Amino acid sequence: MSTDGTKRVRKIVHVDMDAFYASVEQRDNPELRGRPVVVARRSPRAVVTAASYEARPFGIHSAMPAMRAAKLCPDAIFVPPDFTHYKAVSAQIREIFLRYTPHVEPLSLDEAYLDVTDPLISSPSATETARAIRAAIREETGLTASAGVAPNKFLAKIASDWRKPDGQFVIKPHQVERFLADLDVGRIHGVGRVMRSKLAAMDIATAGDLRAVGAAVLIERFGRWGRRLSELAEGVDDRPVKSDREAAQISAEDTLREDLPLFELAPHIQRMADKAWANYRRKAERVACTVVLKLKTSDFQSLTRSYTPVSPPRSAAELAAIACALRNRVGRPPNERYRLVGVGLSGFVDGHEAMLQTALF
């Protein structure tokens, strides 16, 4: 709240590094500059981690099969990913962020939210603060970043993509309604291909259309997600920037050497459960209540199934047993084959709350 009792408008910046992994490789190897670079191993089982802006006009993008990328652009240069190096560069960028605000919420190695409502520097505006941050990144790392500036996280993230690469876009509070009126619903996080088709069947193509339909209709049709869609269509997003993001999920996953049917996945699920459990015991300070099974089909469709038992899992074996049982909920044809298996833990609560939940049941 401000001194006069009104709600204070936040100033949020979303910084997104431009083609981060590929750009790091091009920075470090001058021979790669200006050429189509694909960060991936050139093997039948590999997927693209990142693509330089020179590679993107060929239709190459992250998460596509590496062999397909090679067909789309035979002249592409494939570079195996070096995540140790990328993490070090990311840490350097985060140190720059922290000079401007202590309120930094990393989303990944290459993007973060910053709350610059009260910056650590003397700055006339959030717009100028974002410019200063981008200039420091360029000067100290040789890399470029794009930024979105807005009153909340939802809008800032959309804005950062508006003038990529090496661009900045600002949405001021009085501009929110007009900006959202023509915003394609596909730009709303969580609206994928399936959801987009459902909205299209309701003649909804923009955030303005969502607003016109109204919350009641959206809630009746989509439940809690409908309420959230209605809020976002109005530009409402009260999520604060969390400097110490607790893990939403601790997991382990692996791409298999060959595609396998569901009934052959048990040993691989066990292996991923062991890894996830080891990470959980090492990293988590809270109790995980939900088990997640992740699968990716041979044609790259991702599936997740989850279950919250009465008592949180207490061992890797218990975690693996629950994850294996989740195969019964996959609901796919029996001849379907899978290329990736993952096991995760989510739904974190503190120890007292976990004991209370167990007692209640």
Rank of each mutant, 00 (worst) to 15 (best):
P44F: 00
P44D: 14
R45G: 13
R45F: 05
A46P: 10
A46N: 08
A46C: 06
A46L: 05
V47I: 15
V47N: 00
V47Q: 02
V47L: 08
V47C: 06
V48T: 01
V48I: 01
V48N: 02
T49H: 06
T49I: 11
T49F: 00
A50W: 06
A50F: 06
A50Q: 07
A50K: 12
A50L: 08
A50H: 08
A50M: 10
A50P: 06
A51R: 00
A51L: 01
A51P: 06
S52Y: 01
S52A: 12
S52T: 05
S52D: 10
Y53E: 14
Y53C: 11
E54W: 01
E54P: 05
A55W: 00
A55Q: 01
R56G: 04
R56D: 02
R56P: 06
R56I: 05
R56L: 05
P57Y: 13
P57M: 12
P57N: 15
F58E: 12
F58S: 15
F58R: 11
F58N: 10
G59F: 03
G59H: 09
G59M: 13
I60A: 08
I60L: 02
I60Y: 00
I60M: 08
I60G: 02
H61S: 09
H61K: 06
S62G: 15
S62I: 14
S62C: 14
S62D: 06
A63V: 01
A63R: 02
A63H: 03
A63L: 03
M64W: 08
M64L: 04
M64D: 09
P65R: 12
P65D: 15
P65M: 12
A66M: 09
A66W: 03
A66H: 07
A66F: 05
M67L: 14
M67F: 10
M67A: 08
R68M: 02
R68N: 07
R68G: 03
R68H: 11
R68C: 00
R68Y: 06
A69N: 05
A69F: 06
A69K: 03
A70E: 12
A70P: 07
A70I: 02
A70Y: 01
K71R: 15
K71A: 14
K71C: 08
L72T: 11
L72S: 10
L72Y: 05
C73P: 04
C73R: 07
C73E: 09
P74D: 15
P74R: 00
P74K: 00
P74C: 03
D75N: 12
D75G: 04
D75Y: 00
D75V: 04
A76L: 10
A76I: 09
A76C: 09
I77Y: 06
I77R: 08
I77G: 04
F78S: 14
F78W: 06
V79M: 04
V79G: 13
V79R: 13
P80N: 13
P80T: 11
P80K: 10
P80A: 09
P81E: 07
P81R: 02
P81W: 04
D82W: 05
D82H: 15
D82A: 14
